[in-house]
Protein backbone atom coordinates (compact mmCIF):
# COMPACT_ATOMS: atom_id res chain seq x y z
CA UNK A 1 0.00 0.00 0.00
CA UNK A 2 2.80 2.36 0.97
CA UNK A 3 4.49 1.60 -2.32
CA UNK A 4 1.46 2.65 -4.35
CA UNK A 5 0.89 5.75 -2.22
CA UNK A 6 3.21 8.28 -3.95
CA UNK A 7 1.85 7.44 -7.40
CA UNK A 8 -1.77 7.46 -6.24
CA UNK A 9 -1.28 10.73 -4.36
CA UNK A 10 0.29 12.46 -7.36
CA UNK A 11 -2.37 11.08 -9.68
CA UNK A 12 -5.20 12.08 -7.37
CA UNK A 13 -3.88 15.62 -6.90
CA UNK A 14 -3.09 16.52 -10.49
CA UNK A 15 -5.48 14.37 -12.51
CA UNK A 16 -8.51 13.37 -10.44
CA UNK A 17 -8.84 16.56 -8.40
CA UNK A 18 -8.92 18.90 -11.42
CA UNK A 19 -11.22 16.44 -13.16
CA UNK A 20 -13.66 16.60 -10.25
CA UNK A 21 -13.28 20.37 -9.96
CA UNK A 22 -14.04 20.65 -13.68
CA UNK A 23 -17.39 18.98 -13.21
CA UNK A 24 -18.25 21.50 -10.50
CA UNK A 25 -16.97 24.62 -12.31
CA UNK A 26 -18.82 23.58 -15.44
CA UNK A 27 -22.07 24.37 -13.63
CA UNK A 28 -20.95 27.88 -12.64
CA UNK A 29 -20.44 31.31 -14.12
CA UNK A 30 -16.87 32.10 -13.21
CA UNK A 31 -14.26 34.53 -14.42
CA UNK A 32 -11.52 32.76 -12.46
CA UNK A 33 -11.16 35.46 -9.80
CA UNK A 34 -14.43 36.31 -8.04
CA UNK A 35 -16.56 33.65 -6.39
CA UNK A 36 -18.18 31.20 -8.84
CA UNK A 37 -21.95 31.65 -9.24
CA UNK A 38 -24.23 28.66 -9.81
CA UNK A 39 -25.27 28.47 -13.45
CA UNK A 40 -27.16 25.21 -13.73
CA UNK A 41 -27.00 23.88 -17.24
CA UNK A 42 -26.56 27.32 -18.83
CA UNK A 43 -22.96 26.65 -19.92
CA UNK A 44 -23.89 23.35 -21.52
CA UNK A 45 -26.88 24.87 -23.29
CA UNK A 46 -24.57 27.54 -24.63
CA UNK A 47 -21.96 24.94 -25.66
CA UNK A 48 -24.48 23.04 -27.74
CA UNK A 49 -25.48 26.22 -29.59
CA UNK A 50 -21.94 27.63 -29.92
CA UNK A 51 -21.39 27.43 -33.68
CA UNK A 52 -17.59 27.59 -33.42
CA UNK A 53 -17.52 24.81 -30.83
CA UNK A 54 -19.76 22.61 -32.96
CA UNK A 55 -17.65 23.32 -36.04
CA UNK A 56 -14.53 22.47 -34.05
CA UNK A 57 -15.89 18.93 -33.72
CA UNK A 58 -16.45 18.76 -37.47
CA UNK A 59 -12.83 19.83 -37.94
CA UNK A 60 -11.52 17.33 -35.44
CA UNK A 61 -13.48 14.50 -37.05
CA UNK A 62 -11.97 15.49 -40.39
CA UNK A 63 -8.56 15.57 -38.73
CA UNK A 64 -9.04 12.10 -37.23
CA UNK A 65 -10.22 10.68 -40.56
CA UNK A 66 -7.14 12.20 -42.19
CA UNK A 67 -4.81 10.80 -39.52
CA UNK A 68 -6.25 7.35 -40.16
CA UNK A 69 -5.06 7.75 -43.75
CA UNK A 70 -1.87 9.82 -43.41
CA UNK A 71 -0.68 8.24 -40.16
CA UNK A 72 -2.13 4.76 -39.62
CA UNK A 73 -2.60 3.56 -43.21
CA UNK A 74 0.53 5.26 -44.51
CA UNK A 75 2.44 3.90 -41.50
CA UNK A 76 1.23 0.39 -42.32
CA UNK A 77 2.22 0.73 -45.98
CA UNK A 78 5.66 2.00 -44.99
CA UNK A 79 6.09 -0.82 -42.48
CA UNK A 80 5.54 -3.32 -45.28
CA UNK A 81 7.79 -1.37 -47.63
CA UNK A 82 10.58 -0.99 -45.07
CA UNK A 83 10.37 -4.60 -43.88
CA UNK A 84 13.65 -5.95 -45.19
CA UNK A 85 16.98 -7.08 -43.76
CA UNK A 86 18.85 -5.57 -46.67
CA UNK A 87 21.47 -2.92 -46.10
CA UNK A 88 20.04 0.60 -45.85
CA UNK A 89 16.60 -0.35 -44.57
CA UNK A 90 17.48 0.05 -40.92
CA UNK A 91 18.74 3.58 -41.60
CA UNK A 92 15.60 4.38 -43.59
CA UNK A 93 13.40 3.17 -40.75
CA UNK A 94 15.38 5.38 -38.39
CA UNK A 95 14.97 8.41 -40.64
CA UNK A 96 11.29 7.77 -41.20
CA UNK A 97 10.72 7.60 -37.45
CA UNK A 98 12.84 10.67 -36.60
CA UNK A 99 10.01 13.29 -36.74
CA UNK A 100 8.24 11.42 -33.93
CA UNK A 101 10.86 12.52 -31.39
CA UNK A 102 10.64 16.19 -32.38
CA UNK A 103 8.27 18.48 -30.55
CA UNK A 104 5.03 19.39 -32.27
CA UNK A 105 6.00 23.03 -31.91
CA UNK A 106 9.29 22.52 -33.77
CA UNK A 107 7.47 20.53 -36.45
CA UNK A 108 4.82 23.24 -36.73
CA UNK A 109 7.32 26.09 -37.02
CA UNK A 110 9.37 24.15 -39.58
CA UNK A 111 6.33 23.36 -41.72
CA UNK A 112 5.14 26.94 -41.65
CA UNK A 113 8.35 27.60 -43.56
CA UNK A 114 7.86 24.66 -45.89
CA UNK A 115 4.35 25.89 -46.73
CA UNK A 116 5.25 29.59 -46.87
CA UNK A 117 3.77 31.23 -49.93
CA UNK A 118 6.85 33.07 -51.15
CA UNK A 119 9.88 31.11 -50.01
CA UNK A 120 8.45 27.78 -48.90
CA UNK A 121 9.79 24.48 -50.16
CA UNK A 122 6.48 23.37 -51.60
CA UNK A 123 5.81 26.46 -53.70
CA UNK A 124 9.47 26.74 -54.70
CA UNK A 125 9.33 23.17 -55.97
CA UNK A 126 6.17 23.88 -57.93
CA UNK A 127 7.71 27.00 -59.46
CA UNK A 128 10.95 25.24 -60.34
CA UNK A 129 9.10 22.57 -62.32
CA UNK A 130 6.98 25.14 -64.13
CA UNK A 131 3.82 24.71 -62.06
CA UNK A 132 4.10 28.14 -60.46
CA UNK A 133 0.39 28.73 -61.05
CA UNK A 134 -0.37 25.99 -58.55
CA UNK A 135 1.47 27.79 -55.76
CA UNK A 136 -0.95 28.68 -52.98
CA UNK A 137 -0.82 30.31 -49.54
CA UNK A 138 -1.60 26.84 -48.15
CA UNK A 139 -2.08 27.80 -44.52
CA UNK A 140 -3.71 31.15 -45.16
CA UNK A 141 -6.78 30.00 -47.08
CA UNK A 142 -9.67 28.15 -45.43
CA UNK A 143 -9.95 25.50 -48.15
CA UNK A 144 -6.44 24.10 -47.65
CA UNK A 145 -5.32 25.05 -44.12
CA UNK A 146 -6.90 22.12 -42.27
CA UNK A 147 -5.81 19.60 -44.89
CA UNK A 148 -2.20 20.73 -44.63
CA UNK A 149 -2.20 20.53 -40.86
CA UNK A 150 -3.37 16.94 -41.31
CA UNK A 151 -0.52 16.30 -43.73
CA UNK A 152 2.04 17.72 -41.30
CA UNK A 153 0.54 15.55 -38.59
CA UNK A 154 1.01 12.59 -40.93
CA UNK A 155 4.63 13.57 -41.53
CA UNK A 156 5.15 13.74 -37.78
CA UNK A 157 3.43 10.52 -36.71
CA UNK A 158 3.43 8.03 -39.60
CA UNK A 159 6.77 6.80 -38.24
CA UNK A 160 5.16 5.93 -34.93
CA UNK A 161 2.61 3.65 -36.55
CA UNK A 162 5.23 2.28 -38.92
CA UNK A 163 7.30 1.09 -35.97
CA UNK A 164 4.33 -0.57 -34.30
CA UNK A 165 3.29 -2.37 -37.47
CA UNK A 166 6.88 -3.23 -38.32
CA UNK A 167 7.37 -4.99 -34.99
CA UNK A 168 4.12 -6.86 -35.52
CA UNK A 169 5.13 -7.90 -39.03
CA UNK A 170 8.30 -9.40 -37.61
CA UNK A 171 6.22 -11.61 -35.34
CA UNK A 172 4.32 -13.23 -38.19
CA UNK A 173 5.82 -16.68 -38.78
CA UNK A 174 7.58 -16.82 -42.14
CA UNK A 175 6.32 -20.31 -42.95
CA UNK A 176 2.80 -18.90 -43.32
CA UNK A 177 4.00 -16.96 -46.34
CA UNK A 178 5.94 -19.90 -47.70
CA UNK A 179 2.86 -22.09 -47.47
CA UNK A 180 0.78 -19.43 -49.20
CA UNK A 181 3.35 -19.09 -51.96
CA UNK A 182 3.31 -22.84 -52.53
CA UNK A 183 -0.46 -22.58 -52.85
CA UNK A 184 0.07 -19.96 -55.53
CA UNK A 185 -0.95 -16.82 -53.60
CA UNK A 186 0.43 -13.58 -55.02
CA UNK A 187 1.73 -10.64 -52.98
CA UNK A 188 -1.62 -8.90 -52.63
CA UNK A 189 -3.38 -12.12 -51.66
CA UNK A 190 -0.69 -12.85 -49.08
CA UNK A 191 -1.18 -9.34 -47.65
CA UNK A 192 -4.96 -9.59 -47.33
CA UNK A 193 -5.07 -13.26 -46.28
CA UNK A 194 -2.13 -13.35 -43.85
CA UNK A 195 -0.69 -9.95 -43.00
CA UNK A 196 -3.88 -7.99 -42.30
CA UNK A 197 -5.59 -10.65 -40.13
CA UNK A 198 -2.36 -11.11 -38.15
CA UNK A 199 -2.17 -7.36 -37.57
CA UNK A 200 -5.81 -7.00 -36.55
CA UNK A 201 -5.07 -6.44 -32.86
CA UNK A 202 -2.48 -3.79 -33.70
CA UNK A 203 -4.84 -2.04 -36.09
CA UNK A 204 -7.47 -1.87 -33.35
CA UNK A 205 -5.01 -0.32 -30.90
CA UNK A 206 -3.67 2.12 -33.48
CA UNK A 207 -7.13 3.35 -34.43
CA UNK A 208 -7.93 3.91 -30.76
CA UNK A 209 -4.68 5.86 -30.32
CA UNK A 210 -5.43 7.96 -33.40
CA UNK A 211 -8.97 8.73 -32.27
CA UNK A 212 -8.20 9.65 -28.66
CA UNK A 213 -5.06 11.49 -29.73
CA UNK A 214 -7.02 13.33 -32.39
CA UNK A 215 -9.58 14.73 -29.95
CA UNK A 216 -6.74 15.92 -27.71
CA UNK A 217 -5.04 17.57 -30.70
CA UNK A 218 -3.75 20.99 -29.77
CA UNK A 219 -0.03 21.56 -30.29
CA UNK A 220 0.12 21.53 -34.06
CA UNK A 221 -3.07 23.56 -34.46
CA UNK A 222 -1.88 26.13 -31.96
CA UNK A 223 1.58 26.40 -33.49
CA UNK A 224 0.58 26.53 -37.13
CA UNK A 225 -2.68 28.48 -37.36
CA UNK A 226 -4.35 28.75 -33.93
CA UNK A 227 -7.78 28.41 -35.51
CA UNK A 228 -7.12 30.76 -38.44
CA UNK A 229 -7.95 31.46 -41.25
CA UNK A 230 -11.55 32.43 -40.40
CA UNK A 231 -11.91 29.63 -37.86
CA UNK A 232 -11.21 26.97 -40.50
CA UNK A 233 -8.76 25.11 -38.26
CA UNK A 234 -10.45 25.64 -34.92
CA UNK A 235 -10.48 22.40 -32.92
CA UNK A 236 -12.03 21.85 -29.47
CA UNK A 237 -8.75 22.32 -27.57
CA UNK A 238 -7.80 25.61 -29.22
CA UNK A 239 -11.32 27.01 -28.82
CA UNK A 240 -11.49 25.95 -25.16
CA UNK A 241 -8.20 27.69 -24.37
CA UNK A 242 -9.41 30.87 -26.08
CA UNK A 243 -12.68 30.90 -24.15
CA UNK A 244 -11.01 30.36 -20.80
CA UNK A 245 -7.89 32.48 -21.08
CA UNK A 246 -8.56 35.17 -23.67
CA UNK A 247 -12.18 35.75 -22.68
CA UNK A 248 -11.81 34.97 -18.94
CA UNK A 249 -14.83 32.68 -19.10
CA UNK A 250 -13.40 29.94 -16.94
CA UNK A 251 -16.81 28.45 -16.18
CA UNK A 252 -17.76 28.21 -19.83
CA UNK A 253 -14.33 26.93 -20.89
CA UNK A 254 -14.48 24.22 -18.25
CA UNK A 255 -17.94 23.19 -19.44
CA UNK A 256 -16.48 22.74 -22.89
CA UNK A 257 -13.71 20.54 -21.45
CA UNK A 258 -16.35 18.41 -19.75
CA UNK A 259 -18.20 17.99 -23.05
CA UNK A 260 -14.92 17.01 -24.69
CA UNK A 261 -14.12 14.47 -21.96
CA UNK A 262 -17.58 12.91 -22.19
CA UNK A 263 -17.39 12.65 -25.98
CA UNK A 264 -13.91 11.07 -25.94
CA UNK A 265 -14.85 8.61 -23.18
CA UNK A 266 -18.08 7.54 -24.87
CA UNK A 267 -16.37 7.01 -28.21
CA UNK A 268 -13.46 5.06 -26.68
CA UNK A 269 -15.73 2.82 -24.65
CA UNK A 270 -18.06 2.21 -27.58
CA UNK A 271 -15.09 1.49 -29.83
CA UNK A 272 -13.57 -0.99 -27.38
CA UNK A 273 -16.94 -2.72 -26.95
CA UNK A 274 -17.47 -3.00 -30.69
CA UNK A 275 -13.97 -4.26 -31.41
CA UNK A 276 -14.31 -6.86 -28.62
CA UNK A 277 -17.63 -8.04 -30.01
CA UNK A 278 -16.04 -8.26 -33.44
CA UNK A 279 -13.46 -10.61 -32.00
CA UNK A 280 -16.08 -12.88 -30.50
CA UNK A 281 -18.14 -13.20 -33.67
CA UNK A 282 -15.14 -13.74 -35.90
CA UNK A 283 -13.38 -16.47 -34.01
Amino acid sequence: MLFAAPAMLLFATFVLLPLGASVYYAFTFWDGFSAPRWAGFANFARALTDPTFLMSFVHVVFYIAATLIFEVTFGLVMAVLLNSDRRGFSLMRGMFFAPVVLSMSAAGVLWKFVLDYRTGLLNSTLRSVGLGDWAQPWLAQPETALLFICIVSGWKYAGFYMVIFFAALRRIPRNLYEAARLDGANGVQQFTAITLPMLKQNVIVCILLAVTGGFAGFDLFFTMTNGQPFGATEVPATWIIKQAFDQNQIGYGVALTVVLTVVVSLISIAYLKISERGNVTRY
Partner: peptide, 24 residues
Protein backbone atom coordinates in the same frame (compact mmCIF):
# COMPACT_ATOMS: atom_id res chain seq x y z
CA UNK B 1 -9.66 -0.52 -7.41
CA UNK B 2 -6.60 1.72 -7.27
CA UNK B 3 -5.25 0.26 -10.47
CA UNK B 4 -8.60 0.69 -12.21
CA UNK B 5 -8.77 4.34 -11.12
CA UNK B 6 -5.28 4.91 -12.45
CA UNK B 7 -6.29 3.54 -15.83
CA UNK B 8 -8.72 6.46 -16.27
CA UNK B 9 -5.63 8.45 -17.09
CA UNK B 10 -4.94 6.37 -20.18
CA UNK B 11 -7.83 7.73 -22.21
CA UNK B 12 -8.21 11.18 -20.70
CA UNK B 13 -7.06 14.01 -22.99
CA UNK B 14 -4.92 16.59 -21.12
CA UNK B 15 -6.95 19.56 -22.45
CA UNK B 16 -9.92 18.17 -20.55
CA UNK B 17 -8.52 19.30 -17.19
CA UNK B 18 -6.15 22.06 -18.29
CA UNK B 19 -8.33 24.93 -17.06
CA UNK B 20 -9.23 23.46 -13.69
CA UNK B 21 -5.58 22.51 -13.23
CA UNK B 22 -4.60 26.09 -13.94
CA UNK B 23 -6.81 27.49 -11.19
CA UNK B 24 -5.69 24.74 -8.83
Amino acid sequence: LMYRILLIGLLLPPPSVAIALFTQ
